[in-house]
Amino acid sequence: MSFIIDYYNYWIVVFLMMAGFYIVISANNLVKKVVGLNIFQTSVFMMYISIGKVTNGSAPIVAEGITTYSNPLPHVLILTAIVVGVATTAVGLALIVRIKRAYGTVEENEFKDKDDLI
């Protein structure tokens, strides 16, 4: 039982990661692929934050009467990664808009077929 309590967090994170990965490799629509990529990304964030958690710890803001704090370093890394993540997602979505304009479709198999015509 304690074995499950020790590891369940990582396992669910792996499950979410794989759900995102499955969407990326199986979806045909590029927007859905980006959603899958974001799910993958969020699960990686969760992995980092889980590693930084200390049992009975508290948020890393100094307050009276608190001695155990969780690790602030993963929080810093992930905080910046979230903002950078949305910025790069925006670039990906912009590319999708351009693909739609050039090929008239965002379905992967359809614009691959049209590639020979252009």
Binding site: M46, P74, I78, V83
Partner: peptide, 17 residues
């Protein structure tokens, strides 16, 4: 993230994500 003590991260995720 709030539950895992990462309040700053939770804040960012709610606003950005």
């Amino acid at each position: 993230f709030v539950n895992l003590d990462a309040v700053d991260v939770a804040f960012t995720e709610a606003a950005v994500g």
